[in-house]
Amino acid sequence: MEDIKKRIRKFRSDREWEQFHTPQNLAKAISIESGELLENFLWNNNFDKDAVSEELADVVIYCLYMADSLGVKIEDIINNKIDKNENKYPVEKAKGTSKKYTEL
């Protein structure tokens, strides 16, 4: 993952795009790219895996830029979130159900 982070940072830096990568702009970009990802599933379940993969990559790249912008380590925030989710969704209550934790 570190090699990927270095590569996308260099890509951005070479183009002097850091100035545009504020948390606000990155949040918008993540939302827009997520919409483009979702568009691949509009109307039916027949989707182009390459197109979906490309949009997924855009979402992940912008998420990595957001973590950079906020000065957080993506691994840390993911682990913290999983810790919280493990408490909200204990296996004995959540296994096999899609109910929200407030309904378990």
Rank of each mutant, 00 (worst) to 15 (best):
Glu18Ala: 06
Val59Pro: 00
Leu64Pro: 01
Val91Asn: 05
Lys73Met: 09
Asn40Lys: 03
Asn46Glu: 12
Ala57Ser: 13
Phe11Leu: 14
Thr102Asp: 11
Glu103Leu: 10
Lys84Asp: 02
Ile74Leu: 15
Asn87Thr: 14
Asn25Lys: 09
Asn85Gly: 01
Ile4Cys: 01
Leu38Gly: 11
Ile74Pro: 05
Asn45Tyr: 14
Ala29Pro: 02
Met66Pro: 01
Asp50Gly: 07
Glu103Ser: 09
Glu75Gly: 01
Gly96Thr: 04
Lys99Ser: 11
Lys49Asp: 12
Leu26Lys: 06
Lys28Met: 10
Asn46Cys: 02
Ala67Tyr: 02
Glu75Met: 06
Asn87Leu: 15
Lys93Arg: 09
Asp48Leu: 03
Ala27Asn: 13
Ser98Met: 13
Leu104Phe: 12
Val72Met: 08
Glu86Gln: 10
Leu42Pro: 00
Ala67Gln: 02
Glu75Leu: 07
Leu104Gly: 08
Gly35Phe: 06
Tyr62Met: 13
Gln24Leu: 04
Glu18Pro: 01
Ile30Pro: 00
Tyr62Ser: 01
Asp14Glu: 12
Ala29Val: 05
Asp3Thr: 13
His21Cys: 09
Leu26Asn: 06
Leu38Arg: 10
His21Ser: 10
Asp76Gln: 11
Tyr89Gly: 01
Val52Arg: 02
Phe41Thr: 03
Phe47His: 14
Val72Lys: 06
Trp43Ser: 14
Val52Ser: 04
Arg9Asp: 11
Ser98Tyr: 14
Ile32Gly: 05
Asp68Pro: 01
Pro23Gln: 08
Ile4Thr: 09
Met66Asn: 02
Arg7Asp: 10
Leu26Ala: 07
Asp14Asn: 09
Thr97Lys: 11
Leu56Cys: 03
Lys5Ala: 00
Leu64Phe: 09
Ile32Val: 15
Tyr101Glu: 13
Val60Met: 10
Leu70Pro: 04
Val60Tyr: 07
Ala67Thr: 05
Glu39Cys: 06
Ile61Pro: 04
Lys93Ser: 03
Tyr62Thr: 06
Tyr101Gly: 05
Cys63Val: 12
Lys100Asp: 14
Ser98Asn: 14
Leu70Glu: 05
Ala94Cys: 06
Thr102Pro: 00
Glu75Val: 14
Glu2Arg: 15
Gln19Tyr: 04
Ser69His: 04
Leu26His: 09
Leu37Ile: 06
Lys10Asn: 08
Leu26Trp: 08
Arg12Thr: 15
